[in-house]
């Protein structure tokens, strides 16, 4: 460890250090400061209001909604995307040839902008769309997809699951490849059925890949914005009001920058604690199956 290397080390890492100060440390402090003011984003003056923003936030329906909506998204989106990516990975795994081409094909939805996929879905679900015409005429179902609380949440979850399925299937496929084939042969000799083979062998042995998928998809859930902004604006009646949506609306539409900063801090604390707890639960499940 000589001085020349020391200087070079600092020189090479300097882009990060500058970035961390300007776009992490300063914003962090600024955010804490703002959260205790009543600043409106434009006015040159503001006053200190102490913790009023926080007490107000805890009682606001928008914040309460954001808290529960995130967990509803977790409950709907995660099982959906895990199931679909496991199915895709299983199907690709069963192909002796052209695996790569299929994986590339299934990956394509990941390239879609959230705006584009939302607009397509809006078209597909518009009142006179073929899907709704079919549901109305053949089944007598008249669904206002984006105007019904749970349907709206479900639609957004499906769009995001569609986007990530191929990506996660790619991760799971490499998980499958690392499973020792001899275990299956032994199980088949013992007469274990395919269904049991999947749940008792494949699923637990897939843990490292599943862990990656779960952590990634939980991160995605806490950052949902584009699809909600484009399709529902957080509605109907806050049914899809995610944290990002709430903060965006408060800060940039209602110009309550101080108040929105308080919400952002609450959101990040909630996010941090939730992800920590969920991770522990997943790791516990992994430990029970013999993974460290």
């Amino acid at each position: 460890m000589n001085t020349k290397q020391g200087r070079l080390g600092w020189l090479f890492t300097s882009p990060y250090l500058i970035y961390a100060v300007v776009f992490f440390l300063i914003p962090l402090v600024w955010s804490l400061f703002l959260s205790m003011t009543d600043w409106n984003l434009i006015s040159p003056t503001f006053s200190f209001v102490g913790i009023t923003n926080y007490t107000e936030a805890f009682q606001s329906p928008g914040v309460k909604a954001a808290f529960f909506v995130t967990f509803k998204f977790l409950a709907v989106f995660i099982p959906l995307v895990v199931a679909s990516s496991v199915i895709v990975a299983l199907i690709v795994k069963g192909l002796p040839k052209y695996k790569g081409i299929f994986l590339i094909g299934f990956f394509l939805p990941y390239l879609a902008s959230g705006v584009v996929s939302s607009l397509i879905v809006k078209g597909l679900l518009s009142y006179n769309s073929p899907i709704n015409e079919f549901l109305r005429n053949s089944l007598g179902l008249d669904i206002d997809w984006l105007g019904t609380p749970f349907a709206a949440l479900f639609v957004v979850a499906v769009i995001i699951a569609w986007k990530f399925t191929g990506y996660y299937a790619l991760i799971l496929t490499s998980g499958f490849e690392s499973i020792n084939k001899e275990i299956y042969e032994a199980a088949m000799i013992d007469g274990v059925s395919a269904w049991q083979r999947f749940w008792k062998i494949t699923f637990p042995l897939l843990y490292p890949a599943l862990y990656t998928v779960l952590i990634l998809s939980i991160g995605v859930t806490f950052g949902i914005f584009t699809e909600v902004y484009q399709l529902t604006g957080g509605g109907p009646n806050f049914a899809t009001n995610t944290w990002q949506m709430e903060i965006f609306t408060r800060a940039f539409s209602n110009l309550q920058a101080g108040y929105a900063s308080a919400i952002a801090i609450i959101a990040s604390v909630v996010t941090f604690i939730s992800i920590f707890i969920i991770r522990k639960i997943i790791e516990l499940w992994g430990k029970r199956n013999g993974w460290d």
């Binding site: 776009f23 962090l28 703002l34 950052g223 944290w243 903060i247 900063s261 952002a264 996010t271 941090f272």
Partner: peptide, 8 residues
């Protein structure tokens, strides 16, 4: 959580 950084 990056969410805190948007406004500042």
């Amino acid at each position: 959580p990056a969410i805190i950084l948007l406004i500042p």
